[in-house]
Amino acid sequence: MSKMNNMYSEKVMEHFTCPHNVGEIKEADGIGEVGSPVCGDITRVYIQVEDNIIKDIKFKTFGCSAAIASSSMLTEMAKGKTLEEALKITDADVAAALDGLPPQKMHCSNLAASALHKAIEDYQNKNNIAS
């Protein structure tokens, strides 16, 4: 039945069906929330930082399957990275890791990447670290 949805790659469907790192982190070191100007959907990312490294990361998404899959993929990519490395992850990287997204769904990967960047900023602001 994998042909059922020709719109999305297998990877997207995998991450949509069994998303990784769903949830919240209580007393997170940084939280970032982004609402899409395109569709109004929302993603929130929580990070826990230790020694400048993303020790743990979780997300919550109100959005389409591409947005959920992107959030899941992004959290996998960011986990264990330094903040500087994590800040370099772009929406294009997320989309590529998912074996691509349909053109009208590219903005969905942007939600996840932007929310992560905001979470890192939030952490840096709280800890008076200049980025």
Binding site: G23, E24, I42
Partner: peptide, 15 residues
């Protein structure tokens, strides 16, 4: 709903 940031019931609960 368990994945959604808008689900009020879940807010503030650590996973």
């Amino acid at each position: 709903r368990a994945m959604s940031p808008l689900n009020k019931d879940n807010e503030g609960e650590a996973k």
